[in-house]
């Protein structure tokens, strides 16, 4: 009796397993590089294991500091996808500028269209805006890059250049007025004289998982962006030490170290084969 149950159980499990596998294979035919599909890339903001929310207080157990974010925006750009066998797809640049804004939940989803079919195993992108685009005429700064539109507030007008990451909030550890902390990180390396460069490239592999882009099937890639690592990285940023870091001689080295920290905030989480 017991044996029978076990056998049935095994049988059911294996049926389930094969059924699952079969369905899996059925829905993703071999990629045809002549066909195009789309993919969604989600930048899911977190603070450690907690979801990132504005106006919520978090504690950084490493420093003992607490902080309540009131604004978070950052640019992602120049996205590339790579298959396991090394084929690289570079998203056309003007379709590859995204501004993630914590105030606008829809902005965390970046949709990429016209990707050649393939089983992608890695994504590369920049945090920030590439140097060249920072020097382009205004007519080549449309959409996400429009200084009077989507990118309003993400641009230094007195020192031509985009702000790559803008992270503001309050913290009892801040000695600034209103206990505010303000991190505006940018700097593309300078136009005629060299200066700091806070553009960072991020590469993320998906382990054994694949982003299976097919015509008519849009998978979604979920990346976790852990803002605890904004503080706790190779450099330990303490709000008590630096409540304000922008583009200034006094904090230039800190801005660069923060950029090194944010380069390592991103990690692979999961893929949904059929989107969402």
């Amino acid at each position: 009796m017991n044996k029978l149950k076990l056998k049935i159980g095994i049988l059911m499990l294996s049926v389930g397993f094969f059924a699952c596998k079969k369905q899996h294979e059925h829905s993703e035919p071999a990629p045809d590089p002549n066909k195009k599909g789309s993919a969604e890339v989600y930048f899911d903001n977190f603070v450690g294991t907690q979801e990132f929310r504005l106006n919520t207080t978090y504690t950084n157990s490493t420093t003992g500091e607490s902080f309540k974010p009131t604004m978070l925006k950052y640019f992602i750009s120049n996205i590339q996808l790579k298959t396991a066998n090394g084929t690289v797809y570079t998203v056309p640049q003007m379709e590859s500028y995204f501004l993630i804004n914590a105030e606008d939940p829809a902005s965390k989803k970046c949709i990429i269209n016209n990707i050649p079919e393939g089983d992608y195993s890695e994504i590369k992108f920049l945090v920030g805006i590439d140097s060249l685009r920072n020097t382009k005429p205004v007519e080549e700064r449309t959409g996400t890059l429009d200084i009077a539109g989507a990118a309003a507030g993400m641009y230094w007008s007195w020192n031509s250049g985009y702000i790559f990451v803008k992270f503001e909030g309050e913290s009892p550890q801040s000695t600034a007025a209103g206990n505010k902390f303000r991190y505006h990180i940018g700097g593309f390396g300078g136009y005629s004289s060299p200066t700091i460069n806070c553009i960072r490239q991020v590469s993320i592999e998906f382990g054994n998982d694949r982003l299976k882009v097919r015509q008519g099937n849009t998978p979604s890639l979920h990346l976790i962006v852990d803002f605890l690592k904004f503080f706790n990285g190779g450099y330990q940023l303490k709000i008590a030490d630096y409540h304000t870091v922008m583009f200034s001689p006094a904090t230039a080295t800190i801005a660069v170290q923060i950029a090194n920290n944010y380069q390592n905030m991103f990690k692979y989480d999961h893929i949904h084969d059929h989107g969402h």
Binding site: T135, P137, Y155, S157, W158, S160, Y191, S192
Partner: peptide, 13 residues
């Protein structure tokens, strides 16, 4: 200080 490197970008400041 030469902070703006194109005349068209100037007026925003």
């Amino acid at each position: 200080d030469g902070g703006v490197f194109h005349l068209d970008l100037f007026a925003i400041a």
